[in-house]
Simulated scan of single mutants.
Amino acid sequence: MRDLMGMMKKAKEMQTKMQDLQAEMANLTAEGKAGGGLVAITLGGDGKVRAVNIDSSLMKEEEKEILEDLLLAAYNEAKEKIETVIAEKTQTITAGLPVLPGFKLPF
């Protein structure tokens, strides 16, 4: 019975920490750059693009396809950074509690 009570206590603590993490994630941002910094995208913890910065040297019609590729690369880099930070923070919160394989936190 003690094990169950201890596990319930840990689950409650984890729930509180997850709520704190979700609030923190709302303010989390990461910047992805491509093309040596010619294109930069700032991504929020919610996965939404917050800002796009394009160097004016790329504003040529014949380089449109290159610009599109650089935007994708910068976005993907920023998204990967956000996912890494979230995974690290989630792992510290769930340490000691069994989590089902494939179960993604936060909810």
Rank of each mutant, 00 (worst) to 15 (best):
A11P: 00
E62P: 00
L70M: 12
I66F: 01
M25W: 04
E61T: 14
R2Q: 11
M18L: 15
M1L: 09
N76L: 07
G6T: 13
L71V: 07
K12L: 13
K79A: 15
E24Y: 07
L28Q: 10
E13H: 01
K9Q: 14
A74Y: 08
D46S: 14
E77K: 10
T84V: 08
L4Q: 10
E88C: 00
V85C: 02
A78M: 05
E61F: 06
A78F: 10
E13A: 13
L71A: 04
A34S: 15
A30V: 01
T16K: 11
Q15D: 14
T29G: 03
M8G: 03
V52H: 01
Q15A: 14
D20N: 10
A51M: 06
A11T: 12
M1N: 03
E77I: 00
M5D: 12
E65G: 00
G35W: 07
A26I: 07
G32M: 07
K79L: 11
I41A: 06
M8I: 15
E62I: 00
L43S: 03
S57A: 13
E65K: 01
E61Y: 05
E31N: 06
N76F: 05
E13P: 00
E80R: 09
Q22F: 02
N53M: 04
L72Y: 05
Q19S: 12
A11C: 02
N53K: 11
K9R: 13
L28A: 09
L28W: 10
E63I: 04
D69V: 05
T42A: 03
G36Q: 09
A30Q: 10
G35N: 08
E88N: 14
E63R: 09
D69P: 00
A74F: 07
